[in-house]
Amino acid sequence: MARYTEALCKLCRREGFKMYLKGERCYTEKCAIAKRNFAPGQHGHNTKKMGQYAIQLRSKQALKRIYGMLEKQFRTYFKEAARREGQTGEVLMQLLESRLDNTVYQMGFAVNRRTARQIIRHGHVLVNGKKVNIPSYRLRSGDVVEIKEGSRSILQVKNGLELSNNRNLARTWLDVNTDQFKGTFVRLPKLEEMEVPVDLQAIIELYSK
């Protein structure tokens, strides 16, 4: 399976805001945005006004990178969102937020989505009492996500819980009990409840061409 293997901090600099791809580092003065808040490359200091297509492209690239996807997978999610009833932007975000890797991260059991994927692939996560090692597994209302009892002391989980003190984890669609290393995916979130740092309408316009 194809995956991005280059520098993660470069992605945040390209989009111009923190996407919290590096976990702990993003909350310190070592964060690339704090040190070099301009796009990478020799022309990174240029601040040209972006046209409509550039805005659409940057919005799509940013959202894709936040959730750790490549183009083909992200486009598949968009096509499914467009087919479903409701606002395409909200449905797209609900599909992304209901992924298992994202939920493990949002519950505070991993420092970022990349680490959450690693924890899941290595078999440390249970859904409704059964091991699930597919990061893209889609959760439904009432599903219980839990870190296996024998995996609760691994470094990735401990770091995630420590870092959660610096993050705003008030996710109204999740019911989390960190003491028991488990949480419930209560329902699909509404658009106004989610943190959406990009222009969803721009993404819809881009794919609608």
Results as ranks from 00 to 15, higher is better:
residue 3 R to M: 12
residue 5 T to I: 12
residue 6 E to I: 05
residue 8 L to E: 08
residue 9 C to R: 05
residue 10 K to E: 04
residue 11 L to H: 08
residue 18 K to Y: 12
residue 20 Y to M: 06
residue 20 Y to V: 00
residue 25 R to S: 12
residue 25 R to L: 11
residue 29 E to M: 06
residue 29 E to Q: 08
residue 32 A to D: 08
residue 32 A to W: 00
residue 33 I to R: 01
residue 35 K to R: 15
residue 35 K to Y: 06
residue 37 N to P: 02
residue 38 F to E: 11
residue 39 A to D: 08
residue 40 P to F: 10
residue 40 P to W: 04
residue 41 G to M: 05
residue 44 G to M: 06
residue 45 H to C: 13
residue 45 H to T: 14
residue 45 H to V: 11
residue 45 H to W: 15
residue 47 T to Y: 14
residue 47 T to N: 13
residue 50 M to A: 15
residue 50 M to L: 15
residue 51 G to F: 09
residue 53 Y to W: 11
residue 53 Y to E: 07
residue 53 Y to A: 03
residue 55 I to H: 13
residue 55 I to A: 07
residue 56 Q to W: 02
residue 58 R to Q: 11
residue 59 S to A: 14
residue 63 L to Q: 00
residue 64 K to N: 01
residue 65 R to H: 10
residue 67 Y to H: 08
residue 68 G to K: 01
residue 68 G to H: 03
residue 70 L to A: 08
residue 73 Q to F: 08
residue 74 F to Y: 13
residue 74 F to K: 01
residue 77 Y to W: 05
residue 79 K to F: 08
residue 83 R to C: 15
residue 84 R to G: 01
residue 86 G to T: 00
residue 88 T to Y: 07
residue 90 E to A: 14
residue 90 E to T: 07
residue 92 L to M: 01
residue 95 L to Q: 11
residue 96 L to F: 14
residue 99 R to C: 09
residue 99 R to G: 09
residue 100 L to I: 01
residue 104 V to I: 09
residue 105 Y to I: 02
residue 105 Y to K: 06
residue 107 M to W: 10
residue 108 G to F: 03
residue 108 G to S: 06
residue 108 G to A: 06
residue 109 F to W: 05
residue 110 A to N: 05
residue 111 V to Q: 13
residue 114 R to W: 10
residue 117 R to V: 09
residue 117 R to A: 15
residue 118 Q to L: 11
residue 119 I to L: 15
residue 121 R to W: 07
residue 123 G to K: 04
residue 124 H to A: 14
residue 124 H to T: 03
residue 125 V to S: 10
residue 126 L to D: 12
residue 127 V to G: 08
residue 128 N to M: 09
residue 133 N to C: 06
residue 134 I to C: 05
residue 134 I to Y: 14
residue 135 P to K: 04
residue 136 S to Q: 05
residue 136 S to M: 04
residue 137 Y to C: 09
residue 140 R to T: 03
residue 140 R to S: 14
residue 141 S to R: 08
residue 144 V to E: 15
residue 146 E to T: 10
residue 151 S to L: 01
residue 151 S to F: 01
residue 156 Q to L: 11
residue 156 Q to F: 14
residue 159 N to P: 07
residue 159 N to R: 09
residue 159 N to T: 03
residue 160 G to L: 02
residue 160 G to Q: 00
residue 163 L to P: 06
residue 164 S to N: 05
residue 166 N to M: 09
residue 166 N to W: 07
residue 166 N to K: 14
residue 168 N to R: 10
residue 168 N to W: 10
residue 173 W to A: 04
residue 173 W to Q: 01
residue 174 L to V: 01
residue 174 L to G: 10
residue 175 D to K: 14
residue 175 D to S: 13
residue 178 T to S: 08
residue 178 T to N: 02
residue 178 T to M: 07
residue 179 D to N: 12
residue 180 Q to P: 00
residue 181 F to L: 07
residue 184 T to R: 02
residue 185 F to G: 02
residue 185 F to E: 05
residue 186 V to N: 12
residue 188 L to I: 00
residue 188 L to H: 11
residue 189 P to Q: 07
residue 190 K to Q: 14
residue 192 E to M: 00
residue 192 E to N: 09
residue 193 E to F: 03
residue 193 E to P: 03
residue 199 D to K: 04
residue 199 D to Q: 06
residue 199 D to E: 10
residue 200 L to C: 05
residue 206 L to I: 03
residue 206 L to T: 04
residue 206 L to F: 15
residue 207 Y to F: 13
residue 207 Y to V: 03
residue 207 Y to N: 08
residue 208 S to N: 13
residue 209 K to A: 13
